[in-house]
C-alpha cells in the first residue's frame, strides 16, 4: 500500500499537525520507508488468530463510586496557556 502526498495531507490533518508542502515530500519518503518495514507482516497467515491487546488475560477492575477528588482548579490552571473566570480559553468554536 504505497503512500502518496494526498495521504500525507489527509493523515496530517487527522492528527492536527501542520505539514508544509516542502516538508510533505520528506515526510512521505520517511513514512514510506517505515511502511516498507511494516509490510513484512502481510506475509504472515493470521487467519483465526485472536488479536492481542493486552499481555495478560485479566479483566477490568472496578472502582467504587466515591468522590475522591477535590477542587484543584487554581493549581491546574496555573499552567494553562489562557484562562478567564475559571474557563480555558480557545479561539471561538464554530458549530
Amino acid at each position: 500500500m504505497a503512500l502518496n502526498l494526498e495521504d500525507i495531507k489527509r493523515i496530517a490533518h487527522l492528527a492536527r499537525i501542520e505539514v508544509s508542502d516542502t516538508e510533505a515530500q520528506e515526510t512521505l519518503n520517511k513514512l514510506s520507508g517505515i511502511l516498507g518495514l511494516i509490510e513484512q507482516m502481510q506475509a504472515v497467515d493470521t487467519a483465526g488468530i485472536a488479536p492481542m491487546s493486552h499481555s495478560q488475560d485479566v479483566t477490568q477492575r472496578l472502582r467504587e463510586d466515591v468522590v475522591t477528588q477535590t477542587n484543584q482548579r487554581e493549581l491546574f490552571q496555573s499552567i494553562a496557556p489562557a484562562t478567564q473566570d475559571g474557563l480555558y480559553l480557545v479561539p471561538k468554536v464554530i458549530e
Binding site: 478567564q84 474557563l87 480555558y88 480557545v90 471561538k92 468554536v93
Partner: peptide, 15 residues
Amino acid sequence: KSVHDAVEGMSGIDL
C-alpha cells in the same frame, strides 16, 4: 462544555 462569547471571539471550556 463550550461557553461561547464569554470573551469576545473566544470560547470558554468548562470540563
